[in-house]
């Protein structure tokens, strides 16, 4: 199972010979991939094909049984299910992550919040927020420091159509600024917005360059 780049310019993220099994169930068997700087790449595949497992391994959140991941630059991961603290407000989350990322101010975070339209919920405990708003906060925490490489696991679950479009505007702006984005995506809807698509399958992993551009 090999996914290789068409050119060798500025590799932002690469994985070599990734294997992962949960018990006797083999999820990833020798996945290789290379993502160049500035690309927006989709990861697609059937349920259970290992998309989330691959992203967790790429982010360092999960250890593979075998294989190597190399990242050039800062990396951020937006998990599939929002990882938030229910007792805290979105603003308190921003303050904690401002400290974590050592950001001098929260201007970029507020810009993202305005684009995703949830500024009205900044001082409400997360536990009373809707699923979509929690997902918006989950996404802002992953993007607020403008990481070089960002891994997004179905980041628009629960978004309404306008927010879904706003998300792809943000992705396009990241691409224009040279940021690299890997997103678990739904091929039918999103192919036109991607530079390349990685198709995970039980038999083979295939990368299609220039998928929609």
């Amino acid at each position: 199972m090999t996914v290789s780049p068409s050119t060798a310019t500025g590799t932002a993220l690469s994985a070599r010979d990734i294997h992962k099994a949960f018990g006797r169930r083999v999820v990833l068997a020798g996945v290789d991939l290379t993502v160049r700087s500035g690309q927006t790449v989709g990861v697609v595949g059937e349920n259970g094909a290992g998309k989330t497992t691959l992203l967790r391994i790429l982010s360092g959140d999960l250890r593979p049984d075998q294989g190597t991941v190399t990242v050039d630059g800062t990396l951020s991961h937006c998990p599939q299910h929002p990882v938030l603290n229910n007792a805290l407000t979105p603003f308190q989350h921003l303050r904690l992550f401002q400290e974590a990322f050592r950001l001098p101010h929260l201007d970029r975070a507020h810009e993202l919040i305005d684009r995703l339209a949830f500024a009205d919920h900044l001082h409400v405990p997360v536990k009373v927020l809707s699923g979509g708003t929690r997902q918006k906060l989950n996404l802002v925490l992953a993007l607020m420091h403008d990481p070089d490489v960002v891994l997004l696991d179905e980041p628009y679950q629960g978004f309404d159509w306008q927010t879904y479009l706003a998300f792809w505007d943000l992705a396009a702006a990241r691409r224009a600024a040279g940021g690299t984005t890997v997103v678990i995506s739904h091929l039918a809807h999103d192919i036109d917005r991607l530079d390349a698509v990685i198709q995970l399958g039980h038999e083979a992993t295939v990368m299609t360059e220039g998928a929609g551009r």
């Binding site: 990734i18 391994i57 790429l58 360092g60 959140d61 999960l62 250890r63 593979p64 049984d65 075998q66 294989g67 190597t68 991941v69 190399t70 990242v71 050039d72 630059g73 800062t74 070089d148």
Partner: peptide
């Protein structure tokens, strides 16, 4: 876990 910036490798073999 890994933190910070720069090129790095993680998730090596067991």
């Amino acid at each position: 876990e890994r933190q910070g910036a720069g090129a790095w490798t993680h998730a090596l073999s067991a």
